[in-house]
Amino acid sequence: MFDTPHSAIDERLSDTKIAAKKVQVFYGDTHAIKDVDINIQPRSVTAFIGPSGCGKSTFLRCLNRMNDTIDICRVEGEITIDGEDIYDPKVDPVQLRAKVGMVFQKPNPFPKSIYDNIAYGPRIHGLAKNKAELDEIVSSSLQKAGLWNEAKDRLDEPGTGLSGGQQQRLCIARAIAVNPEVILMDEPCSALDPIATAKVEELIDELRTNYTIVIVTHSMQQAARVSQRTAFFHLGILVEEGLTQDIFTNPQDKRTQDYITGRFG
């Protein structure tokens, strides 16, 4: 069902897809992220957890340079994907974002048809030579996102007409359509009901065989369900990072323990 990932060889050679070293983020005078070092493994799900305002979303947005769009935001330190510094002046954020897709908190389909939502990315990047190829990309993306059966008969209908959960899976399909290597998800289920959430979680679990997934979540249960590794952020600091089962059963840091046992956050 899945295509062969295009950079499979690179990923097998190294156990690190994304490496961050001494990352600092400033919003004007606010020091939002302090000295974050993390290695994110390929083709697995890494969850960022932590209380509101801890910087997990900010850090996630550094990974595809989404913070560039905010004038007052400044990023220091080094972030590499496949060994390449993404903040190198030679790297164009457009190129980076084609490789590192993103799914947002609130489902945000374009006010266009379902087909055009998926086809937009491939169109602007010129990934399809003709209509047939584009059709193929659209159908395979919808299939990978588990939305094909629900959407195949209504490709011309507006994407905004779908239910919330379907919209979010449409957004995931849209991200997949440009064939990224990494998918960043910023609290993708926080606007969804439990059934839609379950579907998206199932989808995330399937996608990890082909993509490196980083997910920010408020729900510790969700982190425990979908991720292989978990990172706990607190007040802009990466407190602890490790295998999800270790973090939840045997946290090394007192703050992590307090958070996962519900003492704060």
Binding site: N64, V94, Q95, F104, K106, N108, I124, V178
Partner: peptide, 17 residues
């Protein structure tokens, strides 16, 4: 809404796109 800009930027659209 900024979410539309983010959505387009997120799939790699350039600013003018």
């Amino acid at each position: 809404p900024p979410s539309i800009r983010e959505a387009a930027l997120g799939v790699g659209a350039s600013k003018h796109q």
